[in-house]
Amino acid sequence: MMHSNTHNTNQMMRQVIYALTLGVVAAYYFFGWGVIVQIALAVVTAIAVESAFLSIRNRPIKPSISDGSAALSAILLAISIPSIAPWWIVVVGVAFAIIFGKQLYGGLGNNPFNPAMLGYAFLLVSYPLQMTTWASEFLSFSQSLDVIFNLTSVDSLSGATRLDDVKTQLALGGFISNLELHSTSQAWINLGFLLGGLYLLFRRIITWHIPAAFIAGIVVISSVLYFIDDQIYLPMQNHLMLGATMLGAFFIATDPVSGSTTPKGRLIYGFLMGVLVVVIRVFGGYPDGVAFAVLLMNMIVPLIDYYTQPKVFGK
């Protein structure tokens, strides 16, 4: 039996990691070396935890490590957390993601939830302060190490994200028209992930269904809300270019293992997720909603897949 030599699972994982580069470079440009240090910490933790768990489970270690899935989850989580978060945040988060998000279900292919987002959600509810304090300027390598390993206070270097800021201002009685909505750093980072996502589409690592539906979901719900009241709801373009929108659309929502797999199902899955992202951002208690939207949608994947089976030939 022959196999197509265009893709194999390891190459697919690697391609996704490569595609993240642009977004990571943009994040580095605005936040400095912390971004890279977090990624390094995350990957080392992921490989260590995964190896340890595989050996406990008496499974071969090398094939699983070399498939790149643990590294990918770790990188996605590292990108999602602030670059100045203390080192133990990323270590605890990645360990949780690998152990509770993946290995306890039986490893790659068997996890019902996106491991990176499970880790993120765990960190966000457990350590909300550390998870919402972002670098406000470019930090050098030594500055980053100092902050990450708790040698200097972060206060002078940090602030809230634009989404967080807008949320707070609105809660304090502010109006959209008086607020600064734009964030150059966020826009560039989102653009980086958008381009990386288009590369994945071009290489046929992912299909267009989930990202397109995800973005459509955001556009539709935010336009409706903005139409209802343009003083308390953010316009659509800010929803698209703030927070983890593009990372979510192309890299997180498209995780095949925990996502829907039928063509129609992927449209529903992506669309509802986009809607949930905005709903959580606007009405929820957290600044961004991608992680929770992903986890909530993961739960109903079996249902979506069952009811969206394609029409079989001759039926």
Binding site: M12, P63, D67, L108, G109
Partner: peptide, 9 residues
């Protein structure tokens, strides 16, 4: 060698 299904579709 065979790997796990990642439901890539």
């Amino acid at each position: 060698s065979t790997q796990e299904c990642i439901r890539c579709g």
